[in-house]
Nucleic acid binder design. Structure first.
Lengths: 113, 113
DNA sequence: ATTCTATATAACCTTTCAGTTATAGAATGA
DNA sequence: TCATTCTATAACTGAAAGGTTATATAGAAT
């Protein structure tokens, strides 16, 4: 996967509320598929599909415990999107500061031009 | 829109390489629709649709300059997703540190158990 | 061996998405 | 007014997303 494809996969994975809820659940530690499916009004295969999307994005990984395939959160993918977002945040915060300075300037000189 | 719906909209908007490229272009300042469309092998209506998705997510806003509708980046939406991501990063970095400590501990006591 | 549990896969359906072309509308300029 | 430029909308298409049920597979337990 190219970096762009990785961002596609990660943002796509995060764009669904069920998948974000799954990640929230996994913050408490490893959870099996059945346990993950339980709180949702959704079939087990649906959850398995969501897990596949999350795994493809590198947001989770799976282990093996007898028949169970416990899921755990994987942070690298989040680090990548966070890095991407930081670029934009820098620019925006930069603009914000420039705007701030402009407004302060206007206020300081009000009526004088 | 609920907070969850806002996250849906923002992550969905960021999940497309064309839209990310548009945002990258907008980092240099305001750009009109035609100017935005130019580098892409894509029709103008396609770009207008992408802009609508970005606008709906609050990632850009539009102005008015004669017939032109210049786009500019809007940072609030990014701030929201960044905040969301930070929660997960905290947990992951926490796990990472715990794992680190565990490994250090194992190494310090190697062969002694 | 058989059966039970946990998970994955297949086949299908419906809705959404990303693109197209053609056209409409809004502001400018001759 | 009429033509030109910039942008938006409508109607369509093909592909992908998100769900379903039914079934297959892997491992455990009886």
């Amino acid at each position: 996967m190219t970096p762009s494809e990785r961002l596609d996969a990660t943002f796509t994975a995060l764009a669904d509320p069920t998948r974000r809820a799954i990640l929230a659940r996994l913050m408490t530690g490893e959870v099996s598929v059945m346990e993950l499916a339980e709180p949702f009004a959704m079939s087990q295969p649906a959850i398995s599909k969501h897990l596949k999307v999350l795994e493809r994005a590198g947001l989770i990984s799976r282990g093996r415990d007898a028949q169970r395939r416990p899921c755990r959160i994987e942070g690298e993918a989040l680090a990548e999107v966070t890095g991407w977002l930081d670029e934009y945040r820098k620019v925006w915060e930069g603009n914000y500061k420039r705007l701030d300075a402009l407004l302060a300037d206007l206020q300081a000189n009000q009526g004088k031009a």
